[in-house]
Design a protein around this nucleic acid. Sequence first.
DNA 1: TTGACACATGCCCATATGGGCATATGATTG
DNA 2: CAATCATATGCCCATATGGGCATGTGTCAA
Lengths: 122, 122
Amino acid sequence: MARAATTTDAFNAVSEPRRRQIIDAVAAGERSVGDLVILLGLPQPLVSKHLRVLREVGLVAARDQGRQRLYRLNGVALKPIYDWVKDFEGLWSERFARMDSVLAELAQVTPESTQDGDHDDR
Amino acid sequence: MARAATTTDAFNAVSEPRRRQIIDAVAAGERSVGDLVILLGLPQPLVSKHLRVLREVGLVAARDQGRQRLYRLNGVALKPIYDWVKDFEGLWSERFARMDSVLAELAQVTPESTQDGDHDDR
DNA sequence: TTGACACATGCCCATATGGGCATATGATTG
DNA sequence: CAATCATATGCCCATATGGGCATGTGTCAA
C-alpha cells in the first residue's frame, strides 16, 4: 500500500500547509471559496480540492448562499490531534527545562549512573 | 509536484499512525529497534524506515549501545504541531460549549438575525 | 432564454509513498 | 577469523498525491 489517503483522518488532512492556512482562515469566520482563493493566492480548482479533503475529514462544513459556498471550521475535528500532542507539552515547557537543570546538578553530586560508556547521535 | 515528502516537517512525519506509536513508545524511555519491532508488531525493516523518517525530522535521536541502537524522543520537535493546534482548543472545551448555549438563548430572546434564509451542508 | 458568475470535477503527469523481500554493514562472541 | 546478532539499505510495486488545465453544474441578472 502507498501512503494513507489524505482523507483518512485529521492528521493526514492537516499535513498540507495550504490546508492548514485554509483552516486558519476559516477559523476567523465563514469564507467563500473566492475569499480563500484570494487569501491563499492559489488557483480556484486547487482551493476547491483542498476544501474537499477538509470536508471529507469533517474539518470544515459549508452552506450555500446564492452562488457562493461559505465554508466554516468544525473545530472538534481537530481534537484528536490536540489530544495526542498535548501530552508532550511538558517536554519543552520551562518547568521541564528547569527540572532538567536540577537533574543535571544531581548528576554532578552523585556521578554514579554517569557511566554512559559511549554515546552518539544520528 | 506530488504530496510533500514525509520528511518535510513534523506534520507530515506524524501523519503516519505507526510513527505516532513509535513516538509514544519512545516517549516513555529509550527503546531499541528490536523493542519497537516487538511493541508494534511490524517487520524490522519497516520499523527502521519509520525511524529514519522520524530522525530526519528531528523527532527522535539515537545512540549506539553495543550492537543495539537506542532511540529516544526529542519532544521539542512536536512543538510546532502543538503551537498550531492549541489555538483551537477552545472550540470544543466545555467553556465554549456553555457559551454556545448562552448564544442560543440570546437568539431566542432576540430572533432578529435568525434570518438564515437557507442553510445546508456539504 | 441567454450570458456571466462561483464552484466543483475530470483527466493527465511526476513524484514519493508504505510495504515486502533480500542483502549490506557493524558489533560481539567463540 | 568465522558465525551470529542488531540494524540499515536497496530494489520493486501499487497507490494516491498536488498541481495544471478544461469543462461541467448551478445560480443570478438582463
